[in-house]
Design a protein around this nucleic acid. Structure first.
Lengths: 338, 338
DNA sequence: CTGAAAGCGCTAACAG
DNA sequence: CTGTTAGCGCTTTCAG
């Protein structure tokens, strides 16, 4: 087993306090003393037991991040950014995924691993506002993503309505008139995509285009397969869209695949816009036009918010923060006569 | 602050031990007692302090996973599988990424967060065998991936040479004769890709094909961009390959993009095989033929190995374990006259 | 500037 | 079946 502070103290012939001072770079230690203690530390290969330190200080330096699905590159890329942002504040990240299951999201939001995580960043899909009531413990929670809650927690998400409108405007600007939406939910009760759907509706109205409900395709999940299936369903029922706005890039990519398989040309026959700007969209054979949320900013803000509440300003007012986004036009969108 | 065992004991009018027994489902407690204690627990909203438990037991139930890059879907998908596998053993995963930097890999392998992680799963890129000497602490380490070390640690990786040979055989079987390899390293000293490169060479020899070194393209990293750049470099210098075997799917996808941009047809003019079977390859417009390592098995075996050493069998012999793989033929490979 | 002692919250002997 | 007590390894008053 590892050596303890006491062992080091004994070997160096000093008290544990002195050793502790050295280990923690306490300023007022004579160089001679420091030297002597350091030698003992090296000799024993002493490494401070962080668990003990945590117990004593009530802090662990660990924050948890829970995303729906690491297989979705958006969340993988975001997780990477969060890990980096956390490292800049000397925090480590405990990662979990919820598969977008409410049950799992509740579990996580209620603070799994009590006292081992100092704070929590959660990107919910199915979670309901009620689930957030009476969270035990005092680990700060920061919410990410499109779902909005009437709960006293920081929420970080780009302005989804405005972003969606930008996408629709882009398509309408190319003369597209039958713009489909991919990724609504079957039961309107829980509608994770409702802001983007609202943006779709609002912008169509503003552009004087009808928002034909037959152009809205529902899905159960948000992967490539779901995008392809929704696209096929839409086409099968004769919706004849000349453009598609998908809930996310994965679905958009799936949709493109489905379109190409049916002999439709992208972007000429059907233009496609995604959402997320995952790297894969840049390199797909038809490079994907997409709404690009500033992932770095999202990650940075989320971590900063947790850290701020952890040190110094625990009583900050909960805020809704909207990081930036841009529309990145690539090959999957073009004017009608391509 | 949260209530402690002692608070609960006081409220229930029993000793801490009794409360502890209830919390830990110790079998021999009278139902009446359990009921009484439970009521006190609920009333106070008591939640055991895991940090304290960890200190006491010397175990935290946390294992660390370090991969090069979460932006690479292979590692993201693998991380997801590891998290699931760990959860099945009641372990939580602390995730870190190394960017494939030796310095970071060394740091991780030396056991960052001493005593808070019970075990470590590491997928190294640049790490050298020397770096593994004299690891402090006793947290078991399991290595993942192509790099092999003469060090007493479990190593889990598919048979990369055989897998690469399968890919080349597949291409040769389609009559391809100038099969390029994308993803060697410039300095041969550190050659992460050496096993797959060896497989390429061996199988070409076996097939009676020349292994023309002008068909080997070096890269500095393994992303989509690197694949595209390597492909372009190869083409620019007039290598004229009729097939490409890439170090991984990302590079293969980048290569396809580069080929298409230059007006070459995939698979007719140039067939492409990747490695990893990331989901994106299934949905790309030219669906990617690839070597598919059994990620679930890799994740499961890695976790099982760590857990086994943690409980019961710490003195297991280090082993090299080869999970299965398959070649998945999709659209990016075909006979010459397409 | 350094030492002694208390205690973070929990579990595990050991009694009873 | 339940209570008492010691101590995991560290930091932190409080003295000196």
């Amino acid at each position: 087993m590892g050596a303890s502070l006491k062992d080091v103290a004994q070997l160096a012939g000093v008290s544990v306090k002195t050793v502790s001072n050295v280990v923690n770079n306490y300023p007022h230690v004579t160089p001679a003393m420091r030297e002597r203690v350091q030698r003992a530390i090296d000799e024993l290969g002493y490494r401070p037991n962080l668990t003990a330190r945590h117990l004593r200080k009530g802090r662990t330096g660990i924050i948890a991040l829970a995303v729906p699905e690491l297989g979705n590159p958006y969340f993988a890329e975001l997780a990477g950014a969060v890990i980096d942002a956390a490292a800049r504040h000397d925090y480590t990240v405990l990662l979990d995924h919820t598969a977008g299951l409410r049950e799992k999201e509740v579990l996580v939001s209620q603070g799994f691993r009590a006292h081992v995580i100092d704070g929590l960043i959660l990107s919910p899909i199915e979670l309901e506002a009620d689930d957030l009531l009476g969270r035990p413990g005092d680990a700060p929670l920061v919410l990410l993503g499109e779902r909005e809650y009437d709960a006293p927690y920081d929420h970080i998400a780009i302005d989804n309505v405005a972003a969606a409108r930008t996408a629709i405007r882009h398509l309408a600007g190319f003369g597209r008139r039958r713009i489909a939406f991919l990724g609504a939910r079957r039961e309107m009760a829980r509608q994770p995509a409702h802001l983007r759907l609202r943006g779709w509706r609002e912008e169509l109205t503003a552009a004087g285009l009808p928002h034909d409900d037959s152009l809205v395709a529902a899905t159960d999940a948000y992967g490539r397969w779901d995008g392809a299936a929704a696209m096929n369903a839409l086409l099968d029922r004769g919706a004849e869209p000349d453009a598609v706005f998908a809930y996310n890039d994965l679905m958009a990519l799936g949709a493109i695949r489905a379109l190409v398989e049916r002999g439709l040309r992208v972007p000429q026959d059907v233009s496609v816009v995604g959402f997320d700007d995952v790297e894969e969209g840049r390199f797909s054979t038809v490079a994907l036009t997409t709404v690009s949320p500033d992932k770095q900013a999202i990650a940075r803000l989320a971590v900063e918010r947790v850290v701020a509440r952890l040190s110094g300003a625990p009583q900050l007012q909960p805020e809704r923060i909207h990081p930036g986004y841009t529309l990145v036009a690539r090959e999957s969108t073009a004017p009608r006569t391509g």
